[in-house]
């Protein structure tokens, strides 16, 4: 379990998060949802120690992440931030291979090579393995970064808007893969913009607005008309499909 207590954060003078307190359950697919600027990415980056904590505490299975060496954390959780314009000229196979770096630290074993091959196959990149990162499409690059994160083979995966740039086939296949990882014992925490992906696949939902958590719980408890309309400040209709909530927000 990841436990967050008393977490507040500012960027410059702007408060981003206010006294966040939540538990992210182990062995579940957790979705962070909420409008732009709610603080979802910041919360994920703080949990993933990409930014230093200003106040409050984050523990991973009881251990304080601020007190855990970063190379130890890299064996326990993998985090994928949103990709920026950095154009490194690595072959996709080499990029995914770096996901194994925390394990082999420069001396890859056959196990590491197999893990890379598996990750490439899982994200339909086998044929693109020798292409350079700056010569593939945005969606293919995003899949390569996801494959790198999965290849890290940690108990926890933290993903910041992993559906960015993915077409619907690859988006659905990613969510199915994440659900499969959870079924295999892993825990996934992901920021999701399109609330229906959370409705269809998540086990646990954390809804954030203006730096605060406004609702959390299983999809049926959180994804109702009152909560969502209030969360996004726009009227939302919630229907149902195959026993899961179906959010109609686009018409």
């Amino acid at each position: 379990m990841i436990r967050v207590t008393g977490l507040s954060h500012r960027i410059g003078r702007t408060p981003i998060l206010h006294e966040i307190r939540t538990d992210l359950p182990k062995g579940k697919l957790t979705a962070l949802i909420g409008p732009n600027g709610a603080g979802k990415s910041t919360l994920l980056r703080l949990i993933g120690r990409l930014e230093p904590l200003q106040s409050g505490r984050v523990t991973l299975d009881g251990a304080d992440i601020a007190a855990t060496p970063t190379e130890t954390l890299a064996l326990q959780m993998a985090i994928l931030g949103q990709q920026t314009a950095i154009a490194s000229r690595l072959r996709l196979r080499e990029l995914v291979g770096f996901g194994r770096w925390p394990r082999h630290r420069g001396r890859p074993t056959p196990t590491d090579k197999d893990a890379v091959t598996d990750a490439l196959r899982a994200f339909a990149l086998t044929d693109l393995g020798d292409r350079f990162l700056d010569e593939v499409s945005g969606g293919q690059a995003q899949r390569a970064y996801l494959a790198m994160t999965v290849a890290q083979d940690t108990d926890w995966l933290l993903l910041d808007e992993p559906l960015n740039n993915l077409d619907m086939a690859h988006a659905r296949s990613l969510m199915a893969r994440l659900a499969g990882l959870v079924a295999g014992g892993k825990s996934v925490v992901t920021v999701i913009h399109e609330v229906n992906y959370a409705a269809a696949w998540a086990d646990h939902i954390v809804a954030m607005k203006q730096g605060r958590i406004v609702a959390e719980g299983p999809p049926k408890a959180v994804l109702n008309e009152a909560t969502l309309s209030d969360l996004y400040d726009t009227p939302v209709t919630v229907s149902s499909h195959n026993g899961r909530p179906l959010v109609l927000h686009h018409v």
């Binding site: 993933g48 990409l50 985090i79 490194s88």
Partner: peptide, 20 residues
């Protein structure tokens, strides 16, 4: 060399892979 190549991918990726 690996460390420099990973840092070239960004501070976030480097931290995530356990580098300072």
């Amino acid at each position: 060399a690996d460390r420099f190549a990973i840092l070239g991918l960004g501070d976030g990726v480097a931290s995530g892979l356990g580098l300072s």
